[in-house]
Write a protein that binds this DNA or RNA. Sequence first.
DNA 1: GTTGGCACTCTTTCCTTTCGAGTGCTAATA
DNA 2: TATTAGCACTCGAAAGGAAAGAGTGCCAAC
Lengths: 361, 361
Amino acid sequence: MSISERKKKILAAVVDEYVRTAEPVGSKAIASKAGLGCSSATIRNELAELVSLGYLEQPHTSAGRVPTPMGYRMYVNELMEKQRLSLEETEDINRRMNQKLRELDDTINDVSRLASQLTDYPALALTTRTAVTIKRFDIIYVDANTFIIVVMLSDNTVKNKLVKLPVSVDQKLVQRLSALFNSGFTGITEEAVTPLLINSTERAADDTMGVTSVIAAFAIEVLTEAQTPTASISGENRLLSQPEFRDPDKAHRLMGYLSGGGYILPPEESMEEAGEIKVLIGPENVAEELKDSSVVIATYDAGDNTKGMIGVVGPTRMDYSAVAAKLSILAAGLSRRLGSGEAPPEGMHNKLIIKGDTGNE
Amino acid sequence: MSISERKKKILAAVVDEYVRTAEPVGSKAIASKAGLGCSSATIRNELAELVSLGYLEQPHTSAGRVPTPMGYRMYVNELMEKQRLSLEETEDINRRMNQKLRELDDTINDVSRLASQLTDYPALALTTRTAVTIKRFDIIYVDANTFIIVVMLSDNTVKNKLVKLPVSVDQKLVQRLSALFNSGFTGITEEAVTPLLINSTERAADDTMGVTSVIAAFAIEVLTEAQTPTASISGENRLLSQPEFRDPDKAHRLMGYLSGGGYILPPEESMEEAGEIKVLIGPENVAEELKDSSVVIATYDAGDNTKGMIGVVGPTRMDYSAVAAKLSILAAGLSRRLGSGEAPPEGMHNKLIIKGDTGNE
DNA sequence: GTTGGCACTCTTTCCTTTCGAGTGCTAATA
DNA sequence: TATTAGCACTCGAAAGGAAAGAGTGCCAAC
């Protein structure tokens, strides 16, 4: 069901104003602001209709209007001006990103912190990783009790571990093991690391001291860890600067949820195409704790079939357009660096496709 | 200047009660509680004197008494019952620590999180590292454009980096470089990595493609990073459950300070002997933001001349004895795992030496 | 030195009043 | 028919005031 042009303008004005001031907005304010040449009385009529349509609500008779989640949805889907950041801002973001990025692992923290700084909301970053295998397996002999395991994974991350044994091993054994692991344990996923495989490796290496199992344990650990989604949240405290979280209990509850690594997105629909931005408004969130907050999430391509997400959590009264624009730049930057290379080049303003929950009604 | 036994008991009772309830405590409450057989009127007289001595204060005439920082100081230095945790609690802490610990690097986050969980206050963990050198240098050849640098440091941490080059290198060169770095760059500190050294290595390796400088840059990076103190803070949101931080602005300010990695301790006196616990009460803190909070810090031995600290930040009304006891166990556990081995064995209750700021007046 | 008693103080809480922003409606107007 | 001006009305927020209660300080008695 569609609504008149003027209603749309008014709705947009209400949202803009409310986002700015956090106060219910009255008919006068709109009349004096939006460029539609009509008086507050007319606006009042329109507002009343918007209320009955479900886009706005009144905290109480005789207060101004406040957008409902449905109102925000409409705003985000149709009315919002897709904000284009100025060249300076874009460059600033890219510069700050460049300073920070090394490899994915160290990155995820930095990225969420950066997102939080840019938007002034709490931010989270996460990767879901798809099946990972070991690409190379090396063991460096240090001394009779010590060696270093170095594992390179299919996503080109490298993990290492220093192993100190209570018993002495000779260098030959280590070399044998290194060779065996490098042939037997590469190219397989975690499930394929069976006790059978470990046993046969142990026998083949003529290892009587249980070194094999130590190494195998590390292999499993690395594979498991690499497949476990990692999440990082920063800037929870920024919530406190939002008027809707003046109530410490409310703030505490949400912050607790966030820093508990609470799952922000439902798993089924967790991953979008890289480059898209997803907005979940209030009750559209599955987690009870987020029912009156909103989440904006950008998906990026982290290479090797891996997608990652950066998102921002805030009150439903959130500056969706600014947040979406900034996240979009961040995500594009990440895709460019980490991804398999189909991302647009740095300078380019990307399209900013915004997807809703379902494009409801 | 010393005060009577009874005054001490009363002071202790005031602190205990205030810590528990967060409400100013009145004469009646003390009379009915502390085991001293005298009536509320007597207590009132004593309280009045404690106020004039500066150990207590009244928010206003006709409210109960609240300890001053000086009162807390007295309490911590002399009156506090050094809490001994039950065996179960101790074991619980140790178990939870065991689950988590791998190497120092991953640990620091886990430790601060654990400390925060245990005490229910925000916690921070940090290490200052002393001069670190490289102990071993290996380069693993992967393919013509790719190799892995593996560096083992004097503190037995291992770092690696995957290097992808735009040009092809041959395996021989990599081997030469590996050998050269392993002899030339080991045992030296960061400052000793001079352009001169890098140049001579480059020539010796007959490297015309600038590979040497890439590797040297990594060496420098690793050394620098290893010497940079790392800090980690968790559980900031727990502040919100403390009544003194019901004011969101206050909470926000402190949380902002904390998560900005604010320096909690003055550098000069930053490091104590491992095993000691240090308490900084209210205005004893140097940072303006902490002037009405307290900090409890335990120092642990992280091995290889490195000391680390775990600390907890809370309101001055803090359960010092419980926090100190828990941190002490944590610190001992860390020393045992990471340290050079003089820490007491696990089961043992350690002495819990508590040091003040200065043992003032 | 200790205790009971009592007047006094000061905050907290609750109630009432006032104020004002903003509405909804009606009647006039284009 | 759509818009506007005007006006009574509503309801929350802010301001004022009275009552309640906790706790003190001090005095006189023990």
